[in-house]
Design a binder for these strands. Structure first.
Lengths: 203, 203, 203, 203
DNA sequence: TATGAATGAGTATTCATTCAT
DNA sequence: GATGAATGAATACTCATTCAT
């Protein structure tokens, strides 16, 4: 019993090691440019060994994206669930969490939202967890609409525009992290959210 | 003399043919998945021939990005140069042109701004033409600031936030074109620009 | 003692299970296309386990062929040993049994007589059991020669020709089972044996 | 013109070299055990080079079988077409040619008729050239039936039995060439054909 | 200018087998 | 006795690139 458990744990550890190495490589060189050999070298195993833990390269990607998606949802849900003085503040916290996820986990963010590798896996996006994040956003926008706080009434329209806005900031910060003389990050994010939310609330 | 000129013209024509084929393939299948052979097949030349016109695969990419950047700048500059009743309208036209470039030339937009393949070429972005577009944007924002129309005074900060906003919309529309139930595109873009500009102008 | 015996019995059972699985796979996919893993999967053991019972893949084949040969000899011997009104009828029964073995055990027949995998094992055929079958055939031909029933007197020559004839029918029926519009099998075999035996008996 | 022609010739020469090497290897080690590497080594080219001349391994096999089949048909047709004193002699010549093809081209015979690799190519056998050989055989049997020379009237039945008989001899001679103490080959073949034909002609 | 021929290095993946437990 | 972990060598095949013509 104890032995089996230990073995499972070890197995899971190596799986995680592989995932971690793959994530880093996928992000550094792009999914297509990462070979099983490279992953193997990084963890100092033989390429064959990887096939004990994963059926093929795609399965690594799938697992990786699943993990990333779960992590992403955790960020968003926690932010929306946290106590907040009012709906607007809560919405702001959700948007902030979205950006924060991207900055904390740029590898995952890039693979999930920028490179959109999930499409590569031919898993329809519509039913998957990334959209749960969007659904949550729309829900909270709807709440504000109900409270009569918004100029525009179409929560889908608002949601899409907001998503665009925060995705834009997040992805630029990730993509051009070292290639562009950004303002101080915290200031930029605060300003971005201020104007974004300011414009959509009825004055 | 005339012969040399003709030769040059023909050479240039074939180069353009190669670029065009490569662009389409890069976008359809991703840079890493496009082989010289595939490009050659598309233009019905032998793979070897391409090496007469380009030193290697990377040079095709470089040329392609140069071309894309020129096209991009053309969009932006024309928009900012066009007669407009006031500075805000002119700024709006510029932002609209940015998005329009992305929608008209998703291949170039993706390679340039989303995949950021220029970084792959180890050409620093800071000195290149893409930043000229950003500079233009900042210039026009500065104009509005000078006219006292803005709440915020830091034109770099505003510029970065605006870029993020329109980049977000453009890249989402490109990346999830068929994976997401977008509102009607024109409506979404109009709303997005309205709120973006509305929030930054002093009321 | 009882324990050892039981262990031996169990060991033998698993060996037989492996042989059985391998036989089926070898015939379905060809010796070269069958991996230890596939055999293991079929019997729901780990690949490693097979190595407890067999030194390597070749040993499985060897054992399998030994088993097949024993089975083959059993068919032939029983047929020749069965009571029969006369030598010719007995010979016919032997030939029929040969064909029947092929049809009942196409896997074994193919591995033994068509693919001749024994040669692959570098065990000379001359000393082995397959030739016992041939020897039996020749013996019964000699009997008929002694009885003055044959035109030709060289029992080796007759034996080889007869073997060829029934091997040809058997192997074609196996190899082209589904690729050729055969006459009704029973009719074809009867006709084949009739003409084969008719021609060699003195009229 | 001359240059193109020469190039074509050279191309064809290398193709033939590859085919020849492959044929020998396929026969010596079995199709599944022959790798592109092995073929390449045999002709002292790099494995890559083979892919200039053939799309893949299967195409080599296909070409090889096409070639073998053409050769086979040539043997059979010539034999049946040659002037002969009577139908029975002509039939005998055809059967002899079949055996002779096998002995002259054991590699082809094995791949075509024993290993039945054509089935592997998923080309239905029914419509292909091997069956043309069988059709020719049946035709000539029908002729003899028409002349009232046969006991049995079903030319398909006779044809199948005859094919079995000569295939058996041919394949045994090939398969056990060095593993069995054959009678003198010429004598054996003559005896085999004598009894085969003798039995089917009405006395 | 254009290309056929050629290849070394690389791709994902599978194999038979060994070893420690 | 049974197996999970591990691997070196092999598989078919593709790639960017060079060279001779």
């Amino acid at each position: 019993m104890g032995s089996t458990e230990r073995r499972n744990r070890e197995t899971e550890e190596i799986r995680q090691k592989i995932i971690a190495a793959a994530t880093q490589l996928f992000i550094e060189e792009g999914y297509a440019n990462v070979s099983m050999r490279k992953i193997a070298q990084k963890i100092e195993y033989s390429p064959t060994t990887i096939y004990i833990y994963f059926q093929n390269k795609e399965e690594i990607l799938r697992e990786l994206l699943d993990h990333g998606t779960a992590l992403f949802l955790d960020y968003i849900q926690k932010a929306f669930a946290a106590p907040a003085p009012d709906s607007l503040t809560r919405l702001r916290a959700g948007l902030k969490a979205y950006i924060q996820f991207g900055l904390d986990q740029p590898a995952f963010y890039r693979l999930m939202f920028i490179d959109n590798l999930e499409a590569f896996l031919q898993k329809a996006m519509c039913g998957n967890d990334r959209l749960q994040g969007f659904a949550l956003l729309v829900e909270h926008i709807a709440e504000l609409i109900d409270q009569g706080q918004c100029r525009e009434q179409d929560e889908q329209l608002i949601g899409q525009s907001m998503w665009a806005s925060i995705h834009g900031l997040t992805s630029l910060l990730i993509t051009y992290e070292h290639h562009f003389p950004w303002n101080e990050q915290e200031v930029l994010i605060r300003y971005h959210l201020d104007t974004l939310l300011g414009s959509f609330v009825r004055k």
